[in-house]
Simulated scan of single mutants.
Amino acid sequence: MAFDSRLLNGIGVVSAVVEAGSFARAGEALGLTQPAVSRAVARLEQRIGIRIFNRTARSISLTDEGRRYYEAVAPLIAGIEDATLSAGRAKALVRGRLRVNVDGAFGHFVLTRRLGAFLDQYPDLAVDVAVRDAMGDLVGDGFDVAVRFGYPEPSNLRAELLLETRVLTCASASYIARYGAPSHPRDLVNGHQCVLLRDPSTGRPYEWEFSRGGETIPFQASGRLMVHDTGSLIGGCLGGIGMAQLLELYAENLLGEGKLVQMLPEWSDETFPLYAYHRASNLVSAKVSAFLSFVRQITR
């Protein structure tokens, strides 16, 4: 079919709806009424012959066909925006609003503590950081990029390994005074307490293991406290309730300040990966590229 320039307007409206999460908020961002947004989406749906959104009285979500369409056109729209701005200064390319999806460990203890330098570098950029147990639907929920610990699951997203950080077993001085310090993983079965972290994908505690050289010893950790987030895990460990397995990327400051002590340091070869995720396209927007460069710097 012949290209209709009005398609670009409709695609822009769809992109605003995905980012805002509703027709009303998209209208506010675009300076349109909610009915005008609804009509623009309906015209685009009629033009391309698919239903883009599932609509209910309380929420909207992308249909399967709508998601595939949005994944294909969103990078192109971002490329057009960047090309339009390319006549200005390089910093002018990094502007608008960047929506970032992170897990609690990275969001609370790494990203937000260091984000000020990034915001200072790009004064025309605003950042929304959403901490979530699971990444969910990155595209459908309107996120630009995600940074999360753990191994990637199969998806249409591009996953970039940022680093592999060691898993350290830590305890407070008060815990050591009460229970002693183990000299070997097998000593943990003799009355030691562990603070357990719930795996949101299974509902069960994460499994513990100890690695040295090529040897790995699995351990069935047990304790009276199970938590659902990293902040509570660190809090329980600092409070002397039990030992905890923490990631070195955020535990190193606590160890350096003497607030925690590393247990069994010779058995700490186990690592856990940190990945960045974004749409699988060669047309990565300037704001996403700038953010990924920043994250690579702070995780070196």
Rank of each mutant, 00 (worst) to 15 (best):
M1Q: 12
R6N: 09
L7M: 14
G12H: 02
V14L: 06
A16G: 00
G21R: 11
A24I: 15
E28I: 14
E28K: 14
L30M: 12
Q34A: 08
P35T: 05
A36W: 00
V41C: 11
A42T: 10
Q46N: 15
I48K: 07
I50G: 09
R51T: 07
F53C: 06
N54P: 11
T56G: 08
S61Q: 12
T63L: 05
T63S: 05
D64E: 09
D64C: 09
R68P: 05
Y69Q: 08
E71W: 02
A74C: 10
P75V: 02
D82T: 10
S86P: 04
G88I: 09
G88L: 13
V94Y: 00
G96A: 01
L98K: 00
R99P: 08
T112N: 12
A117W: 13
Q121H: 12
A126V: 14
D141P: 09
G142T: 02
F143A: 06
D144N: 05
Y151V: 15
P154M: 06
L157G: 05
E160H: 14
T165C: 08
V167S: 07
L168G: 00
T169E: 00
T169M: 02
Y175A: 03
H184T: 04
N190Y: 13
C194H: 13
L197V: 00
T202Q: 02
R204H: 14
S211R: 03
A221L: 12
A221F: 10
R224A: 14
M226A: 10
D229R: 02
S232L: 15
I234F: 01
I234E: 00
G239V: 03
M243A: 04
A244L: 06
G256D: 12
K259N: 14
W267H: 01
E270L: 10
Y275P: 07
L283V: 12
I298P: 02
I298T: 07
T299G: 10
R300E: 04
R300D: 04
